[in-house]
Design a protein around this nucleic acid. Structure first.
Lengths: 168, 168
DNA sequence: ATAAACTTTCAAAAAGTTTTGAAAGTTCAA
DNA sequence: TTGAACTTTCAAAACTTTTTGAAAGTTTAT
């Protein structure tokens, strides 16, 4: 396989993966592009390489910065902004987990806590079943939340090393 | 909060969550509905409660069965099919992880292995950077794959218990 | 103050995804 | 067999998300 072909395949694959991870297709592609770029790229460079519009490029680069996956790099004497991706994949993974925990898990925990406050006799089957299910979900979600909080802070080798050893 | 209101809120919340997890909105709502139902429900029941069409109900119930989240239940003397959701949330979680591992992680691992086969001098910066990045991703993805394989087989208390203790 | 070099915004268009519902298919009791 | 009771399929419609591109905004050198 030629380099150009491999690069393209990687952009496509990373893009597809992204849409399964709450990161939009283009966002993931821009990230992929920056990941394999040996040097910082300007918005213009990104637009050209991925054949996307100025607005689209701008929007998604901004989102990547928001997620903490890309950083601006300014050069003295240049007005243009350049961008670099975080290249430590373990850090990227943690960033994504962190962001999703904030956006999804935390709101859900609040709602579940609310739902348990349902009033009425815990005697009829419907109510009983409902409370039981919500409670189970709430407990698991709580544990997951704590585990993720720790994972977010953890060092790669330490984490994967211990978990995998543990798992024999 | 009244039971009916709480149920509705739960259906909406679970539906929204689903779309972040590779399970379509309606699919997740049907799952939620079955989760809190004290008894098995027929396709007709689901259609009525969720106000969705026959085709939609059928398609998504089938998908849920595919994912292993819902099971058919036949009653002798009745031609209609009834459906029950898996109510053990930890099992549900494992099922989802298992399915996504198969659908996303495994194909990606194959592609990454391929991408490393790139030919050409590892001397120029572009090629070097590319191989380096792909290799890092491949290694992390491999570790993740192994960890997930173990998690899928693990028992809830054992898993969360040990990981959380470990994480202190 | 001006203009060149950029970045940001946003409404409209395109693309992608999900849902519908009518028609076709299947199963089973009689 | 037949037909009633269901389930499945699929093309078209509805809805959602993403992308575009032109216009507006910002910054900096002169």
């Amino acid at each position: 396989m030629k380099l150009a072909e491999a690069k393209d395949k990687f952009l496509q694959t990373w893009g597809a993966l992204g849409s399964n991870w709450g990161v939009s297709r283009t966002m993931a592609q821009i990230h992929a592009l920056l990941l394999i770029a040996p040097d910082p790229m300007s918005a213009e460079d990104v637009m050209e390489q991925l054949q996307i519009s100025r607005g689209n490029a701008n929007l998604n680069i901004r989102a990547l910065i928001d997620w903490g996956l890309v950083q601006k790099e300014l050069r003295s004497g240049e007005r243009k902004e350049f961008f670099v991706a975080e290249k430590d994949i373990w850090k990227v993974f943690r960033m994504v987990v962190k962001e999703r925990r904030k956006r999804e898990l935390e709101p859900m925990l609040r709602i579940l806590a609310d739902l348990k406050e349902i009033d009425g006799s815990k005697t009829d089957r419907e109510t009983k079943e409902f409370i039981e299910v919500i409670d189970n979900i709430h407990r698991l979600a709580g544990k997951a939340d704590k585990s993720l909080a720790t994972l977010i802070k953890a060092d790669e080798n330490w984490f994967l090393g211990s978990v995998m050893k543990l798992m024999r």
